[in-house]
C-alpha cells in the first residue's frame, strides 16, 4: 500500500487539527482530500511526510513507519507544496539538478533525466531560463517535474492548481492524468470540487479535522444529496419578484429541502418537473436547473459560512 493512515490525531495545544483520521490509498489511484480552509488537509500531509509528529495514530508511507523511517519513505515520494518554493537563484534545469542531489541521484543520471522532465512540464527549451521569467503555470509545472525527479511511487499534491488560470489548471490536470495512466499513485488536497471530480477515483471530505464522508465522487453525491438542483434568483428590473419572499411561501411545497443564501434560493429535488412548471409561471424570477455536483454535497456537509 502506498499509504496507510490509521486513527491519526494531531493537536496543537488545545486545538485538534486532525481528529481520528483513517484512510488507505491503493496503488495507482488518485485520492483527494477535500475540505474548507483549516479543515486539516495540510496538517495531514505534514504528518504523513513525518514533518510533524502525530499526537496519536499510526502512519505507513510506502511501506515505512512514520516518523521513524520518514527519510526512507520520503525517498520514494514526490511533493508539490501549496506555496511555491522553487529556488529563485537557479534556472529551471538547475532547480531539477539541485533537487535531484538531495535524493543522492548521480549527476550523470540527472543530466539524462532533466530534459525528459522539462519536456513533461512543457518547458522543453526553457531549461536555462531563470525562475523569475516563468509564469505561474510554468512554475507549478516545474514544481511537478521537480517532484518527479526521484521517479516516486507516490505523489503528494497540496492544492496543486490554486491561483492558476483555467488554461494552466487544465494543463496540470492533463499532466496528472498522464501520470496516473503511467501507474503513479496520487494523494491530492484541494478545495476545488471540479478538480476532485475530474481527477479522483475516491475522495474524503474533511471538516474541522475529521473525515465526514468518503467514497467515489458519484457515490458521495448519490448518498448525500438529491440528484437535481434548481437555483432561483431575483430577476433585476421592472416586474421583479423577490426570490427570498417566494421561498418563504412556495419553496417548501416543491422542494422539501431548500436553502437561502443571500438573494439565491437553492432547491434540492429528486424530480424537478413540478418546480420547473411552477417557475414557468413566475416571470419575476430567474432560475438555473442543473444536476447536483460535489460542491452541493460539500456545502450540505460543511455548511455555507466562511472559514477564514
Amino acid at each position: 500500500m502506498p499509504l496507510v493512515v490509521d486513527s491519526l490525531y494531531k493537536r496543537f495545544g488545545e486545538r485538534a487539527a486532525v481528529r481520528d483520521l483513517s484512510l488507505t490509498l491503493r496503488a495507482g489511484e488518485c485520492y483527494a482530500l477535500l475540505g474548507p480552509n483549516g479543515a486539516g488537509k495540510t496538517t495531514t500531509l505534514r504528518c504523513v511526510l513525518g514533518l510533524v509528529r502525530a499526537s496519536a495514530g499510526h502512519i505507513e508511507l510506502c511501506g515505512h513507519p512514520i516518523p521513524e523511517a520518514a527519510r526512507a519513505a520520503r525517498a520514494r515520494v514526490g511533493v508539490v507544496p501549496q506555496i511555491d518554493n522553487l529556488d529563485p537563484d537557479f534556472t529551471a534545469a538547475e532547480n531539477l539538478a539541485v533537487y535531484g542531489r538531495y535524493f543522492g541521484i548521480a549527476s550523470s543520471a540527472l543530466q539524462a533525466r532533466i530534459p525528459r522532465l522539462l519536456a513533461f512540464a512543457g518547458l522543453a527549451g526553457r531549461g536555462d531560463d531563470p525562475i523569475r521569467t516563468l509564469s505561474g503555470g510554468m512554475k507549478r509545472r516545474l514544481t511537478l517535474a521537480r517532484a518527479l525527479v526521484n521517479d516516486p511511487d507516490l505523489l503528494l499534491l497540496d492544492e496543486p492548481t490554486t491561483g492558476l488560470d483555467p488554461q494552466a489548471r487544465h494543463l496540470i490536470w492533463e499532466r496528472l492524468r498522464h501520470l496516473l495512466s503511467a501507474g503513479k499513485t496520487i494523494l491530492l488536497t484541494t478545495h476545488f470540487m471540479d478538480e476532485a471530480e475530474r481527477l479522483a477515483s475516491r475522495l474524503a471530505i474533511l471538516d474541522d479535522g475529521a473525515m465526514i464522508a468518503e467514497g467515489t465522487p458519484h457515490e458521495l453525491i448519490e448518498r448525500h444529496i438529491e440528484p437535481q438542483v434548481v437555483e432561483v434568483f431575483t430577476r433585476g428590473g421592472a416586474g421583479a419578484a423577490d426570490a427570498v419572499a417566494w421561498a418563504r411561501t412556495h419553496a417548501a411545497h416543491y422542494a422539501p429541502r431548500h436553502e437561502t443564501s443571500g438573494e439565491t434560493v437553492f432547491c434540492y429535488v429528486v424530480d424537478a418537473a413540478p418546480l420547473l412548471a411552477h417557475l414557468a409561471t413566475q416571470p419575476g424570477l430567474r432560475y438555473l436547473h442543473r444536476p447536483a455536483n460535489l460542491e452541493d454535497m460539500f456545502m450540505k456537509l460543511t455548511g455555507r459560512e466562511l472559514r477564514d
Binding site: 514533518l51 520520503r74 525517498a75 506555496i83 518554493n85 522553487l86 533537487y99 538531495y102 526521484n150
Partner: peptide, 14 residues
C-alpha cells in the same frame, strides 16, 4: 522568505 528549507525537507533530508 524563499522556503528553500521546506523544499529540502520534502526530500530525504531532515
Amino acid at each position: 522568505v524563499q522556503k528553500t528549507w521546506d523544499a529540502i525537507m520534502n526530500a530525504p533530508l531532515s
